[in-house]
Design a protein around this nucleic acid. Structure first.
Lengths: 154, 154
DNA sequence: AAGTTAGTTTTTCTGTTTCAGAACTAAAAA
DNA sequence: TTTTTAGTTCTGAAACAGAAAAACTAACTT
């Protein structure tokens, strides 16, 4: 493993962690993203990340369960080979887009619950709400268009 | 505090936590968003959230430091009154948009580092990268347009 | 001067996360 | 049948986070 890739795994791992994944899970994802061969087996992952079997086992099983990676086997070889599911990146993109909706809903609820004595600030809040809504709508259109012309569906 | 607002604070607090804020900080933000009066003082916040003085003190100071809330005082009254800075919600929106960029950069780096033997999957990854880029560009345009016609700048 | 108010700071406690190590298991190979 | 392979599962242990309690401080009141 070249130094650059090791660095990438650290940096990208840290970024992915912020999405709520555990460190080991984040590093496995980052590793498979820059792996030389399309797939890696358990031992290769463990060695590259210098982690314990248990940590790698749990991480891999979590990722398999969530469909972020896929396993395949070859006849006459008991090892499983793990590959990144590229849909992961589309899912990630969608989950970011969903955040706008989450906060737009929050702002809707807040406007419902706020006293209507707070005229000026309710007006400001409404404008912000509308911006979230705009983002939500635009992204949804772009995504459908992309999915229509692209083969990588999720 | 009505039951609905209490519920809102819990739910929204949990959502905001996911952005990396601590529980108490998230709840203070949620509370100020549906507060009856535009501002609340230390004691009111503490009482409503049923938290300790230390937790509230640290939370408020964190939020003041990051400019997510503002404090004001009235003559002949030593208490400080805290109000939500609405720019917070624009900042939040921007920070979500920045995430696309973060991952687009990751995908760029990954494509640099990946062996060019992996033709097919590199192609797929490039398409995904381009989608992230598209999101990035579109949102940037929408945001500038909105900021141009809107007074709530950050 | 003594007490009260409005917080701040420090210390302690509790729970959670994450990983390593070791024991375990099921299938295949020798 | 015994050994090896390819993991899994089960304790811990270390590190960390969040919050409560309590002691502290600075300004204002009485």
């Amino acid at each position: 493993m070249e130094k650059e890739k090791a660095q990438f795994i650290e940096t990208t791992g840290a970024l992915i962690e912020k999405k709520g994944f555990s460190p080991i899970v984040s590093r496995v994802l980052s590793l498979l993203l820059v792996s030389d061969s399309e797939t890696m087996n358990f031992y290769e992952i463990q060695e590259t990340l210098k982690a314990s079997k248990s940590a790698v086992s749990n991480g891999i099983n979590y990722l398999l369960d969530k469909k972020y990676i896929e396993a395949s086997t070859n006849i006459g070889d008991r090892k499983r080979y793990f590959r990144l599911n590229f849909k992961t990146w589309i899912e990630l993109l969608k989950s970011i887009s969903e955040e706008y909706k989450g906060y737009r809903v929050v702002l809707d609820q807040a406007l419902e619950l706020r006293s209507n004595k707070l005229k000026e600030s309710n007006l400001q809040l409404t404008e912000i709400r509308d911006l979230y809504q705009l983002f939500e709508n635009k992204l949804s259109v772009i995504l459908s268009e992309w999915e229509a012309k692209n083969s990588i569906q999720s």
